[in-house]
Amino acid sequence: MQKQRPKHLDLSKIRLPVPGIVSILHRISGVALFFSLPLLIYLLSGSLSSADAFDSYRAVVAHPLVKLILIGLLWGFLHHAAAGIRFLLLDIHKGLELQTARATAKMVLAVSLSLTAIIGGILW
């Protein structure tokens, strides 16, 4: 006898809990960082170039569109790092209780967003 259970694999019907949101954002930010690797290495190279090249590098980085992309990546890095620390703690069985896990998930979202706003605001 098999019970007919509803299967909610329709993505638009699934309401992810906060830890689930943190998890999928961890994955999405990881993919974004993966595709940005050449850009990130280029940024390091520009920051270490000779004084003349440094000026043209600064002009590139000062472009508002580039700045927006960089702030997006800053959030990606901060979220990936904060969520990563949370996952490492979960791996060693810290914070497994439902209430704690929800609270730390909210903390990850809050910390990465506010740090992005603060650092992004300072660097703009």
Binding site: L37, I41, S45
Partner: peptide, 16 residues
């Protein structure tokens, strides 16, 4: 291929 290329590029940038 992508990651090995990034590695080669990083060698150039870090060591000049």
């Amino acid at each position: 291929v992508w990651l090995v290329s990034c590695f080669i590029y990083s060698l150039k940038v870090v060591w000049g």
